[in-house]
């Protein structure tokens, strides 16, 4: 099976003498659903950041979507990011833009025409049950609604890989179920690889998944 992420002896750190992930080797199959769990401060989010190039490997090799992340050029990184959908715990919505335009962001960046992006955004806002909120601004919505917008944005450009950092961390039950069903749908219907960093794996998930656990800088696969 093809691998979308390959790490070999990967070490990550923010400071020179403080290693967060130490010599980890693992791979993630294309089209799989993966959970990464671990205690607070274990390095889950740091690992996820390395997948979208926000942090460079300190040692070892990391390849995402066939792109070598070691000393990656800005243009290559931009190209890779245009094929990844990211969901953040703090949503990272542009507060000066309407919900509709926020969802449209990846399509604007990829250069889609307004006709194509407009219909795609309408469809996605329908999926996240926010079609009636399209003209509002992020700060006018609840946290759950904002995360659903962020989810719609992550799916807008049909990415090959979705990276989600605690996507339901602070959400109500309804918003959480919408997020999980969208991630599940993207994985089963669109064959998108989904990597989720979380504290708890939801019980309602009906798909096979892989589970990695980070402990003391080591990544172990949980059977």
């Amino acid at each position: 099976m093809d691998k979308v992420i390959i790490a070999q002896n990967l070490s990550l750190s923010y400071k020179e003498f403080e290693t967060i992930i130490s010599k980890a080797s693992f791979s993630i199959d294309t089209g799989s659903f993966v959970f990464i769990t671990g205690a607070s401060g274990s390095g889950k989010s740091t690992l996820l950041k390395s997948f979208y190039g926000a942090i460079e490997p300190k040692q070892g090799q990391l390849s995402v979507g066939g792109v070598n992340m070691n000393r990656i050029s800005t243009s290559k990184l931009n190209f890779l990011r245009r094929h990844i959908g990211i969901v953040f715990q703090d949503y990272k919505l542009i507060k000066e833009w309407t919900i509709e335009k926020n969802v449209m962001l990846p399509l604007i960046i990829s250069g889609y025409t307004s006709d194509v992006s407009g219909s795609q955004v309408q469809k996605l806002l329908g999926h996240v049950k926010l079609i009636h909120q399209a003209g509002k601004y992020p700060l006018e919505l609840s946290g759950g609604e904002q995360q659903r917008v962020a989810m719609a944005r992550a799916l807008a450009h049909n990415p090959i890989l979705i990276l989600a950092d605690e996507p339901t961390g602070n959400l109500d039950e309804y918003s959480s179920s919408v997020i999980w069903s969208l991630l599940e749908g993207a994985n089963t219907q669109l064959k998108t690889t989904v990597v989720v960093v979380t504290h708890h794996i939801p019980e309602q998930l009906n798909i096979p998944y892989k589970h990695y656990h980070i402990d003391a800088g080591n990544i172990n696969e949980i059977a």
């Binding site: 990011r81 245009r82 990211i86």
Partner: peptide, 15 residues
């Protein structure tokens, strides 16, 4: 903030 969010989705510098 807006520029950093756009960068996370691969927007080139000019955009």
């Amino acid at each position: 903030e807006r520029m950093s969010i756009m960068a996370l989705f691969g927007a080139p510098v000019w955009l």
